[in-house]
Design a protein around this nucleic acid. Structure first.
Lengths: 225, 225
DNA sequence: CCTACCGATCGGTAGG
DNA sequence: CCTACCGATCGGTAGG
C-alpha cells in the first residue's frame, strides 16, 4: 500500500542535510508527494506515513514542514482555483472579440486540466474532505470561475454571436468537458496538450452555436440555431 | 439526513419482524441510506454506525443484511453501469438514423445522471475505493459504455452525418458533460429532467457537427465543419 | 528528523 | 437486533 519504501533497512538516523538549506525545496516535495497520493488513493486513505515515505522521512517529521494534513489539501485546492482564474483573466485580456475570448478561455481551461491533471482531479473529488472554512474559500473561487464563462456566453448571445437556450448550461457543458479531461488525459496519447486545447476551443464554439463574424448575418443548419 | 429514525427511544430489543418478511425491504433501505451517505460524506468517511443509524439500527446489526461495507459500494456502482448500458441499448434500438440514435443516447445518458445523481456521483468518485475485482467489473462496463458512443459517432462520420476530428474525444465530451450534470443538477431548478435531456441532445448534435439529413448536402459555418 | 506513544475511530466478530 | 469487544489504523504530540 505504501510507496517509495527504501526497505526497512539503512534508514535509522540518517543525519539531517547540510544545515537547513533545502527546507523550502523539501516543502514542495512534500506537497507534490501528497498530491500524487491524494490523487491515486484519495485524501482520506492517504496517511502521513505514506507522504513521509514518499519523500524519505517518517510521518511525524512532516510536521516540521506542514501544519497538518488538511493544510496540504487546502493549499492544493485553493492554489488550483487561483491559477484557473488567473489563466482565464489572461485569456480574455488579449482580445475584444467574444468568440475569440471564449475560444481562449476554453483553451486555458483545457490546458490547465491536461497539464495539471492531478491538481484538477483532486480539486474536483475532495471538496467534501475540506474543513468548512477552506471549502468556502474553494467554492467561492469556483463560483467566480463559473461566472466568467457564463457571463462571457451571455454577452456573446446579446451581441448575436452565440445562440444558446441557456448560457448557464452552455457554460457548465464547456467546464464539465474540461473537468473530464483531467480524468482520462495522459501525455503521449493521440493528442498533445496544445492540440487538445485547440480541439476543445472549437467544440466550445460549436456548443454555443457561434456564427462567423461579419456584416452579413449567416445561415446555418444547427439544432437550436 | 437520515430516514426511518424512530428516535433513540423504544429501541432496545425490539423483537424481529413477523418472521423474515420485510428483510428485502430493509435491505434496500440500507442500500439507499448508504448511497446517500457515500454521496455526502464519501465512502471512506461513512461508518457502518452511520448507515445503521440512518435506518434505525446499530452498526453490527447491518451484517444481518449485508456482507460488508464494500459490498454495498460495489453493488451500487455495478448496478449503475448496468443500468446505463441497458438504457443506451434501448435508446439506439428505436431508430436507424445515426443522428437520432446519438440524440437518444445522449438523452438517456443525461436522464440517468439527473434522475440518479447520487448513484452517478458516487460511481464516478469512488472507483478507487473498490476492491480490485469489483473495480475491474466496473471499469470493463464503463469501457463498454464509452465504446457505444464512440462507435456511434464513428459511424455517423462514415455516413457523412457527423464531422469531427476525433470520435473518441467527441464521445468523451458528450459523456463528460453528462457526468457533470450529476454534480450540479437539482430538481426544481431552471429545467426539468426532460428539458435538460432534450437540451443536451441538441448540444451533442452540435458537438459532432451534425448536418441535416436529406439528398442535398448543406453548407454551414461551423468550426471544423 | 527520530522513536514512543496518546486518544480516538473503525470494520467486523462473538455470543446472546 | 443488541452489547461488548478485538485488532488495526491514524493524525498529531512529546521529548529528544
Amino acid at each position: 500500500m505504501s510507496t517509495a519504501q527504501g526497505g526497512p533497512y539503512e534508514r535509522a538516523h540518517r543525519p539531517t542535510r547540510p544545515e537547513g538549506a533545502p527546507t523550502v525545496d523539501r516543502r514542495s516535495a512534500i506537497r507534490q508527494a501528497a498530491l500524487r497520493l491524494f490523487a491515486s488513493q484519495g485524501y482520506r486513505s492517504t496517511t502521513m506515513t505514506d507522504i513521509g515515505a514518499a519523500v524519505g522521512i517518517r510521518g511525524p517529521s512532516l510536521y516540521k514542514h506542514v501544519a497538518s494534513k488538511h493544510e496540504l489539501l487546502a493549499e492544493i485546492m485553493i492554489d488550483t482555483m487561483d491559477q484557473l482564474i488567473a489563466d482565464n483573466a489572461a485569456a480574455v485580456a488579449g482580445t475584444d472579440d467574444v468568440r475569440e475570448q471564449l475560444r481562449r478561455s476554453t483553451e486555458a481551461h483545457i490546458r490547465y486540466h491536461a497539464r495539471h491533471r492531478l491538481e484538477a482531479f483532486v480539486g474536483n473529488r475532495e471538496i467534501g474532505s475540506l474543513e468548512q472554512a477552506d471549502q468556502d474559500r474553494v467554492l467561492s473561487r469556483r463560483s467566480d470561475y463559473e461566472r466568467r464563462f457564463r457571463e462571457l456566453i451571455e454577452r456573446g448571445v446579446a451581441e448575436g454571436a452565440f445562440c444558446v437556450r441557456s448560457a448557464r448550461i452552455a457554460s457548465y457543458s464547456i467546464l464539465d468537458m474540461g473537468i473530464g479531461v483531467s480524468s482520462w488525459f495522459h501525455e503521449g496519447g493521440e493528442f498533445s496538450v496544445d492540440q487538445l486545447a485547440y480541439h476543445y476551443g472549437d467544440t466550445a464554439l460549436r456548443i454555443v452555436g457561434a456564427r462567423h463574424p461579419g456584416p452579413a448575418p449567416q445561415e446555418h443548419d444547427l439544432p437550436l440555431g
